[in-house]
Each structure stands twice: as C-alpha cells, then as structure tokens.
Computed example of a mutant assay.
Amino acid sequence: MSDHMLPPANGRRLRVLAAMSGGVDSAVAAARAVEAGHDVVGVHLALSAKPATLREGARGCCTIEDSRDARRAADVIGIPFYVWDMAERFREDVMDDFVAEYKAGRTPNPCLRCNEKIKFAALLDKALGLGFDAVCTGHYARIVEHPDGSRELHRSVDMGKDQSYVLGVLDSDQLAHAMFPLGGDTKGDVRLEAERRDLAVAKKPDSHDICFIADGDTQGFLAKHLGTERGDIVDASGTKLGEHDGAYAYTIGQRKGLRIGHPAADGKPRYVLDISPVNNTVTVGPVEALDVDRLVGIRPRWCGPAPAGVVDCTAQVRAHGEETAAVAEVVDGQVRVRLAEPIRGIARGQAVVLYAGTRVIGSATIDATA
C-alpha cells in the first residue's frame, strides 16, 4: 500500500483541474500538481451571484478579491485560468439546503454539502465531461492507493488542519478522481513553500465561518430568509419559561441568549436540549441532559465498500471535534452508532464520520440521538 499523493502510481500524465479558491492552500496544491508533471488548468468557482469586493478579515470567501488572488497565483504557477459560474447550483444545493435544514430544526454543515454537491459532483462532473482526469484541491487529507488501484481516504498528518471530516461524503468513484497534494504536510510547511514560490497569498489569512455569511451573523441570515415566528421556550415538563422570535436561531447545547425570565430551581444554567419546528418550541434543561451515547444516521455515504456487520471504529461529530471510540452497524439503510463515552450536545443534521484508525469509513447525517 502506498501513500497516494503525486503523481499516480502508474506514472501517467494526468489532465488535472485545480480548484483555486484564492487562498494559499489551493495555490500550493496546484503548483505541486504542475511540478509532478501533470497538465493543470486552474479554475475559480464563482459561488455568489453578487460577490463582495473584499473579504471581511478572515471571514467568508469567494469574493472578487479571492478571484483575483487565484488568477495571480495561476499566472505565477504558469497555468491557464478560468472562472466558472456555479452561483445558481451553489444556491440550490448549499444555501437553500442550509435554510431548509434550520427550518426543520436541524443543524447542517454547509462545507460537507459543498464538497458533496459542488466540488466533487458539479465541478467533477463538468471536469470529466471536458476530458480531465482529476480535480485537485487544497484540502488537508490523504488518499492512500493499494496495488489493485483501490483508494482510501485518510486523515492529514497535520491533525490541527485535518479536513477529512468534511470530505467524508465522498464515495469511491469521486475518490478515484480526487487529488489532495497537501495531506502529508503541515500548514506552516505550506505557507513557507508558498513564499519560496513567490505566491502573494503566502500570508493570506485562512477563511473561517460560513462562506456565504461573511459577517458571521448566522441568526440574521436565517431571519432574512425565514422571518420571525414567536414561540415558547419550555422545560422538559412543558412549562413555559420564556419566548423566542424563531426556533431556528437556537442550536442544541446553546446556553447564552435564551431569554428565560426566571432561574432554574437549582440555580444552575440551562441549555437548549431540543428544537421542535412542529410546535415552534425550544426545550431547555440541565447540561447533563445533553449527553448522548447513541445516534442514528441517515443518507450514509461510504468512502469504499459499506461496512458489514458490527464494526469497531471511532466517530467524529464536529469538524474540529475529537473522535470517540464507537461501534457502528448498518441496519435497513441507517447507520446505528453506539459511543463508548457520551458526547455532549449533538444536534440533528450534523454529520457523524466514522474512522478506522486514520482511514475514513464514511459518513451519515444524524437523524436521532439517545
């Protein structure tokens, strides 16, 4: 088994489409693909119908400035560069999905959806249609290739930057055409390399938060799309404690901003335990009620063959969360996971990603917890 980076095991020169966001990671990834001898074309995805001119610090991405940074990097690397308009597809598959999930009382991860629906579906499909062999991105993850040509998705060596969680939605066919040149390096190494390559983005800050909510005001974004709908804040017994202007503004595990009129009998803080869109209520209670040791995932995506029987693994439920020992089993198309230790504050709509060591087994959307 070999750690698949660049070039492919058979040494064939590939036609590679490098997705260039305008950041340092994708620029260095594209440069490495060229250095490995591949025929590389850079493309920047225009994901907003009305992109801002400038990024707000490290918030957001996909601005006009980012497009220009990507073009300048492509010029330095010496590859052709194009901007592809995918704003409508992004709105339908990522933004509309994001709003619909919150409306349904769930907490989605738009980065997973973007990787699944945009970068490794819409973009990859277009790339293959144009005769490209692979899509190259600056994600921190590794692809390991076996002698028989089968591939596995693994964690990055830089655990602080590891992005295998948001790539856990990729299936075998998508992994067969994916290229992640940065998985064997640290972020510091990549920035130093960018400086050596005279890439102006070497010191550009990483983007954070949700790219289409550049100001970081998720509640304001949702209010604009969903409006206000007054409802009750209740305890586990159904006793009304306060009111809210929209259940979508709350997340499981939230403590601050609950607008509760009087303290709990024991004087301890209360947390959001449940969000019900059916009766527009938010249920709050003690922190220990947030502990979850069982969950059910729907719409599984496997980075290889689906697991058979009961599988010992580790589970990760947040992009930057820790992994927990678990056992998982696929039953009637659902993934049932039992955690060795409780995890606090898991919300429906989040993804659970399963690992065998550093290998990603697959992922599922959390539909129920206990």
Rank of each mutant, 00 (worst) to 15 (best):
P7A: 12
P8M: 11
A9N: 10
R12S: 11
A18V: 05
R32P: 04
L45V: 01
S48D: 05
R55A: 06
R55C: 02
G60Q: 07
C62W: 07
S67E: 10
R68V: 13
V76P: 00
I77S: 03
M86R: 13
E92I: 13
F98A: 01
E101N: 05
P108T: 00
N109V: 10
N109M: 13
C114R: 01
N115R: 10
E116C: 05
E116D: 12
F120P: 00
A122P: 02
L123R: 09
A127V: 00
A127Q: 00
L130F: 09
T137K: 03
H139E: 10
P147K: 08
S156H: 05
S156Q: 09
G160H: 12
A178P: 06
F180D: 15
L182Y: 14
G183W: 02
R191C: 07
E193Y: 04
E195K: 14
R196G: 09
R197L: 14
K203S: 13
H208Q: 08
C211G: 00
F212K: 10
A214D: 08
A223E: 12
A223G: 06
E229M: 11
V234H: 02
D235G: 08
G238H: 14
T239H: 14
K240V: 15
L241Q: 03
T251V: 05
G261R: 15
G261P: 10
R270A: 00
L273D: 01
D274R: 08
P286G: 10
A289H: 06
P305G: 00
P305Y: 02
G309W: 11
D312M: 14
R318G: 05
R318E: 07
H320I: 15
G321I: 06
A325Q: 12
G333L: 02
Q334K: 15
R336I: 12
V337K: 03
E341L: 05
A347E: 13
A351E: 11
G357Q: 04
R359Y: 02
G362A: 04
T369C: 03
